[in-house]
Design a protein around this nucleic acid. Structure first.
Length: 297
DNA sequence: CCACAGGACGGCT
DNA sequence: AGCCGTCCTGTG
């Protein structure tokens, strides 16, 4: 069948949906560029992940994208939007490549990156956990929270867990939340959850306000500062003209563009002026390029 | 035993 | 407004 320009095939006996001749997608680029924490690389090179109440396995064979444990309905209702398949990445990459040689190389290196439209609530908690933490630990903590408060899903011989519903957190005692090993971030997780639940901040409103206002709203949450707010907005697909400036991006921009030390503020100002509405995309290409090639240590 | 990690916070000046 | 010590936990 044809769905919005994509040729889709369903292998019902194997439970696989195939998106033929997919362009601008590579699971390694997309899942390991720093935007998500719940996609695990399997020994065969495929990736297993949980989105909403679905657990799937994603493969790219060099030409087609294969989604295991998936139906046509799931693809239309969830995965088409999650992978942002409506967006033309070749146009974005063309524009960014025109900027300079650095971006051209970064875009070529991470040519299969797509910014996932992840769940807003999940991003808030995930990036609160990310503060002053390392990726393996962040993944471990999110997995702990999901095992503690999520629902069980079976995927073949694997047991997966959905990301916890907000009520599961707010109904919990803060001392119990500590079991997830998030340390000093546990109080942020709990208090931020309470504020979201009580509509002290209305996260559904973020789509209807401009980027700076969205940042201000998110930063009312405990544990959410400038960097976390930008990550939440970008990786949930709410705003794309943000530039999450963590220590690695700072180092990369200093080395590749400034050739001298700079403050986070200067980095942000540069990104806004130089990349404009494409700043968010530029951030991921740069981050992935700089880290994978050890441009920065 | 000590340093420090994909920041945020709070208490300074 | 900027600077800086501190914070859980795990790893080196």
């Amino acid at each position: 069948m044809d769905y919005k320009g994509y040729e889709i095939r369903e292998n019902k006996s194997d439970g696989i949906v195939i998106i033929k001749n997919i362009r601008d997608f590579n699971p390694t680029h997309t899942f390991e560029c720093g935007q998500c924490f719940r996609w695990i690389r399997e020994s065969d090179g495929s990736y297993t992940g949980v989105v909403r109440d679905l657990a799937v396995n994603v493969t790219f064979d060099g030409k087609d994208m294969l989604i295991g444990n998936c139906t046509i309905d799931d693809f239309i209702n969830v995965w088409y939007q999650y992978f942002d398949l409506e967006r033309d990445y070749s146009e974005i990459k063309k524009e960014l490549s025109k900027k300079d040689d650095i971006m051209r190389k970064a875009v070529e290196f991470g040519s299969g990156i797509r910014i996932l439209r992840q769940d807003l609530w999940e991003m808030i908690i995930s990036f609160i956990i990310s503060a002053n933490n390392r990726i393996p630990m962040i993944m471990k903590i999110i997995n702990n929270l999901s095992e503690m408060y999520g629902n069980k899903i079976i995927l073949g011989d694997k047991i997966c867990y959905t990301f916890p519903d907000i009520n599961k957190i707010t109904n919990e005692n803060i001392d119990n939340i500590r079991i997830c090993k998030a340390g000093f971030r546990c109080k942020y997780i709990f208090n931020a959850s309470m504020m979201v639940k009580n509509k002290e901040i209305d996260i559904d409103k973020l789509n209807n306000v401009d980027t700076d206002e969205a940042r201000r709203i998110l930063r009312k949450l405990p544990g959410v500062g400038p960097k976390v707010a930008d990550c939440v907005l970008l990786y949930s697909g709410v705003k794309y003209d943000v530039f999450p400036a963590d220590i690695w991006i700072k180092r990369a921009v200093e080395k590749l563009y400034f050739h001298h030390p700079a403050s986070i503020n200067e980095i942000q100002k540069f990104a806004k002026n130089y990349f404009g509405d494409l700043a968010g995309f530029a951030q991921l290409y740069l981050f992935y390029y700089a880290r994978e090639n050890k441009i920065v240590d």
